[in-house]
Computed example of a mutant assay.
Amino acid sequence: MILLTGATGFVGRAILKNLIKNMRFSVRTFGRSLPFSEPDLTQHVYGNLDADADYTGALLGSDVVIHCAAMAHVHKDSTDKKSEFNRVNCAATIKLAKQAVEQGVKRFIFISSIGVNGGHNQQRAFRFDDISQPWDEYTQSKYAAELGLQQLAKETGLEVVIIRPPLVYGANAPGNFGKLVQAVKAGKWLPLGAIHNQRSFVALDNLVDLIITCVTHPHATNQTFLVSDDQDVSTTQLLEKMSRAVGKSPRLLPVPMSWLRLAGKLTGKQAVIDRLCGNLQVDISHTKTILGWQPPISLEEGIKRCFIEDKEGC
């Protein structure tokens, strides 16, 4: 039995669909609402992710936990973002893991963030064994959870698997990637035609495949895995590929990055511009070596699926 948290989210929903198709696994979900309109597809336990929650009923009979649920955003007017993130992303995670041990769970797969490594890189790609440099309250809470899980593994023998993805994309992706998809589909001109950075991304299908691999792989125990499509591109190249995938000519204005950064400062969008213009590369050689794993689809195929699946209403 696999317990999956966060099954109503972008990544969790895709994991659940994969698990349901894979007849080797039975699955139970935990969360505030049903992940699908058809409750017969899976067992579900209602509850909130919180440090004071009791997860016993959800964990009963489970062998593996895939923990996707997290707090990604807090209200912009919050006076203590660090405390809010830690309450859900760290304290609640450790509480879930401790109760998992009590219920005889063997393996705990934690979906963390590449932001634990840092916000950007310059000299070389991030590696799994780099010194962690979480750069904001969210990634700090993820790193605190990682440390807590690793300590619990030492004390109890729980098999902990940590996965740190970069930006995850796919059909109906949330956030800035979803906005770029809509802009490309609408044929809008974008001032992003002269960005010479390098970034790693991971297609939703590739991330899900790695997570499912880690459910049973004997060498995944107590490992930290970075994941990507293993194909880095600039923001400009990404948008060119997106345009071709939807059958349109790229509409990109070659605005210098220095101008974009200035515009970001003036409009309060500096963080967005930094992500569009900065470097964030991921070295997944450790993941491939330890697990014998390769991303099953290419970046080009992943981008194509963003548009094809959206047209099909998936």
Rank of each mutant, 00 (worst) to 15 (best):
R251T: 00
V27R: 05
L239Q: 00
H67A: 07
K95R: 15
L3W: 04
E300N: 14
H286D: 01
L299F: 10
Q123C: 06
V282I: 15
G12D: 03
A183P: 01
G187K: 02
T213P: 09
F110R: 01
L158P: 10
G12S: 04
G118V: 08
V65K: 07
H219A: 12
V88Q: 04
Q43M: 11
V88H: 03
W189E: 01
A220V: 00
S78H: 07
S234Q: 02
Q99S: 08
D80C: 12
Y55E: 03
E240L: 01
S243Y: 03
L59S: 02
L147C: 11
E300S: 15
L239V: 00
Q43W: 07
V88M: 05
D283Q: 06
R107E: 07
D50G: 01
V202S: 09
K185Y: 02
L19R: 05
N222E: 02
L253N: 00
F201S: 01
R164M: 13
N117A: 13
V202C: 10
D63W: 10
E102L: 14
G104H: 08
P35W: 09
L238G: 02
Q133G: 09
M23Y: 12
H67K: 05
W135E: 10
N18F: 14
P191A: 04
D40W: 13
L239S: 02
K82N: 13
S298A: 10
R244H: 12
A51L: 06
H217T: 01
I297E: 09
F36W: 05
Y143I: 00
I66V: 15
R28Y: 04
Q103P: 06
P191L: 07
G157E: 08
T267H: 04
G12T: 00
G115T: 00
L16D: 07
N121W: 11
G193A: 04
K311N: 11
